[in-house]
Amino acid sequence: MKPPEAKSDPTLGAGDPPLAVFPRLETLKVRADFLSASRAARRGTSGLLLQARFRDDGNPHIRVGYTCSKKIGNAVARNRAKRRLREIARAVLPKHAKPGWDYVLVGKPRATIDRAYDALLGDLRYALKKIHSPSKD
């Protein structure tokens, strides 16, 4: 019996590398990791706040966490904001984030939920670019 053929991924563009080459995204779950990221680099945009830190532990995976305070609204609104943050992270981080870094995406009241999806993607790309660009101090 012949093995089934692998299906091509319709979401990949012509110039995009296959998904297997992208670094793996892991989810932050320990409070200490969130606190470490909150004391490191940060960049605010209209739709979100990005906190980032280099781990230097030899683990090449990109780790990402999501947080939304009660300022966002009730549980339904917070969950909606976190779902939007997770989705933009899946779309942007594999291509623009650096391995060995922790990222925390923080939702902003009203903006994270109401902002257009394309604008949120642009916000995350911009914040990553600013965090990883050399400072001009």
Rank of each mutant, 00 (worst) to 15 (best):
P3I: 07
P3F: 06
P3N: 08
P3Q: 07
P4Q: 11
E5L: 12
E5P: 10
E5N: 14
E5V: 12
A6D: 10
A6R: 14
K7N: 14
K7P: 13
S8Y: 05
S8G: 15
D9K: 13
P10G: 11
P10H: 11
P10Y: 08
P10T: 07
P10A: 07
T11P: 08
T11L: 08
T11A: 15
T11C: 12
L12P: 10
L12G: 15
L12N: 15
G13Q: 09
G13A: 08
A14W: 12
A14V: 13
G15N: 15
G15F: 09
D16E: 14
D16H: 09
D16T: 13
P17D: 03
P18D: 06
P18T: 02
L19K: 11
A20M: 05
A20S: 09
A20F: 01
V21I: 04
V21C: 09
F22Q: 06
F22A: 03
F22P: 07
P23E: 04
R24W: 01
L25V: 03
L25R: 02
E26V: 14
T27F: 00
T27V: 06
L28C: 02
L28V: 03
K29M: 03
K29H: 10
V30R: 15
V30Y: 08
R31N: 05
R31M: 07
R31S: 06
R31A: 06
A32S: 09
D33W: 00
D33M: 01
F34K: 01
L35K: 04
L35Q: 12
S36C: 05
A37W: 02
A37Q: 01
A37E: 00
A37R: 00
S38Y: 04
S38C: 09
S38D: 10
S38A: 13
R39P: 08
R39T: 11
R39V: 07
A40I: 04
A40D: 06
A41R: 15
R42A: 15
R42D: 12
R43N: 14
G44C: 09
T45G: 12
S46N: 11
S46H: 15
S46E: 14
S46L: 06
G47P: 02
G47C: 04
L48T: 08
L48Q: 05
L48G: 06
L49H: 11
L49C: 03
L50T: 04
L50G: 06
Q51W: 00
Q51P: 07
A52R: 02
A52F: 00
A52T: 04
A52M: 01
A52W: 00
R53N: 06
F54L: 03
F54R: 14
F54A: 11
R55V: 04
R55G: 06
D56Q: 12
D56P: 07
D57L: 08
D57Y: 11
D57W: 07
D57V: 11
